[in-house]
Each structure stands twice: as C-alpha cells, then as structure tokens.
C-alpha cells in the first residue's frame, strides 16, 4: 500500500485531478462501449423477433382468410 490515508489516496500526491480524470473518463468510455454494444445486440434480437411475429401474424391472417373463402364458397 502506497498511501497512508484515504485522503492521500484521493490527492495522489497533488496529481489527484489528472489521475482521477483519466481513470474516470476511461472507465466511462469503456462502460459506454460495453453497455452500448449489449444494448445494440438486444435491440437487433428484438427487432428480428418482432419481424418474425409479424410474419407469423400475416401468415395466420392469410390462412384464416383462405378458410373463410372456402366456407363461403360451400
């Protein structure tokens, strides 16, 4: 352990602002990257799932319509 107290740790020998600025910005950027990637992954999945659902609905509707026409004819 290089520091005697917590305040000394925060102060970083007078360079506290610069050290914490760089660590903070780096962590923020990395977390943004990580979370952003995860969110875009989830969005893509949801989008595909929605598309599938819509197609299924359309298929179902088409089937029902076809059945109706059959019953109407008979």
């Amino acid at each position: 352990m290089q520091f005697e107290s917590f305040s000394a740790f925060l102060d970083m020998g007078g360079y506290g602002f610069y050290v914490w600025l760089s660590y903070g910005v780096s962590l923020a950027l990395l977390i943004t990257l990580l979370v952003g990637s995860k969110i875009s992954n989830r969005n893509t999945r949801e989008q595909i799932a929605r598309q599938i659902k819509r197609e299924q609905k359309l298929k179902l509707a088409a089937k029902q319509q076809a059945q109706q026409e059959v019953t109407n004819e008979s």
């Binding site: 352990m1 290089q2 520091f3 740790f9 970083m12 020998g13 007078g14 360079y15 506290g16 610069y18 050290v19 760089s22 660590y23 780096s26």
Partner: peptide, 19 residues
C-alpha cells in the same frame, strides 16, 4: 492505483501510464 510505487520523477501522475 494502490500498490504500484510512484515514479521517482513524475510522482503519482505516473499511474495514468497504466491505462
């Protein structure tokens, strides 16, 4: 941040080096 020694010239600002 905690255990690495400070640089003899640059002091604690050397910790930025690690990122």
């Amino acid at each position: 941040l905690l255990f690495a020694p400070a640089d003899y010239q640059q002091g604690e600002s050397f910790r930025i080096f690690y990122i």
